[in-house]
Design a protein around this nucleic acid. Sequence first.
DNA 1: TGCTGTGAAGTGCTTCACAGCG
DNA 2: CGCTGTGAAGCACTTCACAGCA
Lengths: 212, 212
Amino acid sequence: MADVLKEKHIPRATIQRLATYVQVLEAFTRDDVEVISSNPLALACGVNASQVRKDLAYFGEFGIRGVGYPVVSLIKAITSSLGVDREWRMALIGVGNLGKALLNHGDFRARGFNIREIFDCDPFKIGEIVHGLEVRCTSELPRLVTEEGIEIGIITTPPERAQRAAEHLINAGITAILNFAPARLQVSSNVTVEYVDFFNHLYALAFRHPKD
Amino acid sequence: MADVLKEKHIPRATIQRLATYVQVLEAFTRDDVEVISSNPLALACGVNASQVRKDLAYFGEFGIRGVGYPVVSLIKAITSSLGVDREWRMALIGVGNLGKALLNHGDFRARGFNIREIFDCDPFKIGEIVHGLEVRCTSELPRLVTEEGIEIGIITTPPERAQRAAEHLINAGITAILNFAPARLQVSSNVTVEYVDFFNHLYALAFRHPKD
DNA sequence: TGCTGTGAAGTGCTTCACAGCG
DNA sequence: CGCTGTGAAGCACTTCACAGCA
């Protein structure tokens, strides 16, 4: 499976939409919809029906011609294709307001994304227990990443400390980073950074809705 | 200014990058950089230098040929072009974990995005004070939106209540929505919804970093 | 001379249109 | 017959290459 995916190039936008499809398909299961065709699925996701079919076709033939896609098995097919049908262990750096909020956000664990260790460079925070986890010094990162099998790092530091946090993670062997800090990170090409930035979205809203 | 922008079509991706440029330019001001050319700016943002110049050129001629862009005045030019150099008043629906975390997140106010009213449909929460704001019943939305001049709605409800929250906002006259709930919203074409979804990003990381 | 601003070329994603199959 | 899966066409964004100006 994974081999097939590496051969074709899959657009980044496709991956984003697949996450949306899962979201919407899960809503359909709540309403006991068992089979859905590309048209209503596309409508619910705000995209074109051909787009849905093409996105899914990158990963296999999940539909039944003349019928549609069985909802439950399609969810499984997508999550399996993306590799999110297993546990992912994560470490978080920066135990401030935002970091604590993410720790309290139950959805992560519910979807298999498990925050196992939390770090901060503030000596007053080290040792504190937050949401059942002890705040550690970043010097312990390499050891704990190996021991716990951590694969993803989350950065929730202030912007000026984000780059250092990234370097700590990378030195510990992490190559996948989710960055909530409002800063761009300079990393080598084998490291993937995803940026979560509320202000991007607010700026987009502001631009499209000018006063009067 | 705004007239010019409505004539040309500006790619959505350009708006996103402009937000990034502001972020990076602000970091440069912290290091007392006064003038920057498109090349180093592009490098810091992880994009092509022509891309930077083209993005900026949509809005005007902000650079000095042979020299570069004055950092401070470029920040002002971009924020003014996007319309984010003023106060934006917002209302939040769904005072749960995530909602409370956003209320505690000081960056919003610092950038002029001001959460003025908070709502919940849980009668046990109504009346509670969170971060200096009283939780209101959604039935009060239309009145408060008008009175407070609220232009943007934030949804932080569970997914199954997101659509209703959106309808409350739209009925109150809001046409710009920032949705943190993991659900797609069905809205008419005059309403803009921006989706903030951590899992999109985690899925992208998971897909690009398969085990072994 | 050096860097911006920009038409033209290139690239990649999206949409179309229909063959293929249940 | 209806809906999927897919090559081909269309379209939009990105990159190039260079004219234009400080």
